[in-house]
Amino acid sequence: MLIPCPVCGPRDSREFTCKGHAVTLARPQADAPPEAWDAYLHLRDNPAGPTRELWHHNAGCTAWLVVERNTVTHAVTGARLAGEVAAR
């Protein structure tokens, strides 16, 4: 699997570590209700199809990426710097 790192170009997936769904970037406000925190910490969809995940290029440029990937075809359709996604 190749991941198109915006900094390094297409690189082998073994240079990366996956941290799960990119929802991690959408941290609730500290005073958000417990349900929001529960959803943020524990509840994840298990999609058959497109999904967005956080990958860390830890054996490369150390950037965190939001990788768009299809769980059925394994096709990687894009990757953006997490910082850019978070800053919106």
Partner: peptide, 18 residues
Amino acid sequence: AGQVMAHLELVAQGLRPD
């Protein structure tokens, strides 16, 4: 050490880009 480094990078890049 490795886990903390990755964590700090995620916080700096993804959670607190401000």
